[in-house]
């Protein structure tokens, strides 16, 4: 009886001892050298896993930075601050640190009241699905379809659909990951600087007459903003006004007031 217990005891102790030695040896011999900087960089990144940098998540991006495969300024949500922190960990000087923070905005002010419908759409509530049918049910083929594909992909819930049917991006919540810009089939979601005062609330490249037929708030390409306010940074291309955000513009207030269709709008 006692002997049986002893045998069992001895067998297990010898086995345990042998395996323990094996593990200890393996941990020394087969150790994977881990760069501590990977963890440090990951710590410095915002951790939103938004994918804006083009990598699967913050961990993958951190590894790419340490392996010197990726530029360290790719993190849009982190902005210059994160880039500086990462640069410090990597022991280099931060570059491109003074880039402006960009935020997404729907460049369309159309809704059911202002814009005609070409047909009654029923089906999948997804902008890309609707766009595959005649570029969506709107009379205007450039505008916001407002089915909310951008809302679905936003990692920080910065996008909401307002009661008036328009899609609104909260610029204080937006982390500039551009996911909404990628998913948007009409291209009406565009990035503008965080501190931009005005934006063009239209995306239509149709001629003025065609725009008028389908929408009451669309840019008709009249060029009043470009010609009467030459210092305000407006240029009209393809019957659509654009703001040059890189210059110190003057007189944008006047242009906004003069726009006959009210599509130079204050960012809110």
């Amino acid at each position: 009886m006692i002997l049986n217990i002893l045998y069992a005891f001895l067998t297990v102790s010898i086995l345990g001892g042998a395996l323990g030695i094996g593990l200890a040896y393996a941990s020394k011999k087969l150790a994977v050298k881990k760069d501590e900087r990977v963890e440090a960089v990951e710590e410095a990144l915002p951790g939103a896993n938004c994918g804006a940098c083009g990598y699967a998540g913050c961990a993958a991006y951190a590894e790419a930075i340490v392996n010197e495969e990726a530029d360290m300024t790719l993190c849009a949500p982190g902005g210059p601050d994160t880039a500086a922190k990462v640069a410090a960990i990597m022991g280099v000087e931060a570059q491109g640190g003074n880039a402006k923070k960009m935020v997404a905005r729907v460049h369309c002010y159309g809704n059911e009241e202002t814009t005609t419908k070409a047909f009654a759409y029923e089906g999948l509530q997804d902008c890309n699905a609707a766009y595959a049918m005649f570029k969506g049910d709107n009379g205007c083929k450039y505008g916001c379809l407002a089915l909310g594909s951008c809302i679905a992909v936003c990692p920080v819930n910065a996008i909401t659909k307002r009661e008036d049917g328009r899609i609104y991006v909260d610029k204080d919540v937006c982390i500039s990951c551009r996911k909404c810009v990628t998913v948007c089939p009409t291209g009406v979601m565009k990035m503008i600087p965080y501190d931009a005062e005005y934006y063009i609330a239209c995306n239509s490249k149709d001629k003025g007459g065609a725009v008028k037929k389908v929408c009451s708030v669309g840019c008709i390409g009249c060029k009043i903003c470009e010609k009467k306010f030459p210092d305000a940074g407006f240029t009209v291309k393809d019957f659509l006004s654009e703001i040059d955000y890189t210059i110190a513009a003057q007189g944008q207030d006047g242009a906004a007031a003069a726009c006959p269709v009210d599509c130079i709008r204050v960012t809110d």
Binding site: L124, A129, A132
Partner: peptide
């Protein structure tokens, strides 16, 4: 709308 879903998935 299953078929529309499949079409969207392919696109």
């Amino acid at each position: 709308p299953l078929v529309q879903g499949m079409r969207l998935g392919k696109n």
